[in-house]
Amino acid sequence: MIELVEYIAKALVDYPENVSVNQVEGEQSIILELKVDPEDMGKVIGKQGRIAKAIRTVVKAAAAKEGKRVVVEII
């Protein structure tokens, strides 16, 4: 899942070298913390969070296959 979030974020931003994803395991779910360059924040969030929502939707689809609940947080 980390690789997936990284893959999408790197394709969207201007500074792919500053993309990092950290995984925090919870009891029932996995939290993926996505960090990008401050200048790239808009590129992964989008107007009214539209891009963030699309990233979450795709990650959810990939996670469903593995039967896990995954939360993507942008920090």
Partner: peptide, 27 residues
């Protein structure tokens, strides 16, 4: 094989894939 997962509820996954691909293509 798993087109159902790729489509998602009301096509939500398909829409998300389409939107992200469009962004990357036109960047």
């Amino acid at each position: 094989e798993n087109a159902g997962i790729l489509i998602g509820k009301h096509g939500s996954t398909l829409d998300a894939l389409q939107y992200l691909t469009s962004l990357v293509t036109n960047r």
